[in-house]
Amino acid sequence: MIEFHLDRGSGVSTYLQLVHQVRHALRLGALRPGDQLPTAREVVESLAINPNTVLKAYRELEREGLVEGRPGQGTFVRRTLGGATLAEHTRLRRGLEQWVRQARGAGLDQDDLNALFTAVTTDLAKEDIA
């Protein structure tokens, strides 16, 4: 079961924070298909937020096809997030490990590695948009 938390100073609206947290949990595998999300009342009791905010977040997740509301039972996870299958995950991870070893051999430290990785992913993302 996922436990929500709020970052009140973030400027991100409350319902979006809930949506992001569910997506994040799906990506990391903390939530799996069939898992139940907490009821609006449970979320409200722990966070002291308006129940309509929770319902709005759940509606958004439902719209994205990530969860489904079953009348009288609650809201359940329908599918997981993450573009790749488990097998692909393993294969890609191996490739990345190899790349990291090569980079270390070339004398890059942790910060250099991070900077390079971020730069590449950002540039590729820009290319995609363009």
Binding site: L6, R8, T14, T39, A40, R41, V44, E45, L47, A48, I49, N50, P51, N52, T53, V54
Partner: peptide
């Protein structure tokens, strides 16, 4: 809020501290 979620309750609440209301009022 729990009561609003559990029963069909309508609430009118006053405050002069707006930040108290951001996450609770719609």
């Amino acid at each position: 809020m729990a009561e609003v979620a559990a029963h069909e309750l309508t609430v009118l609440l006053s405050s002069h501290v707006v930040s108290d209301l951001t996450d609770t009022c719609d």
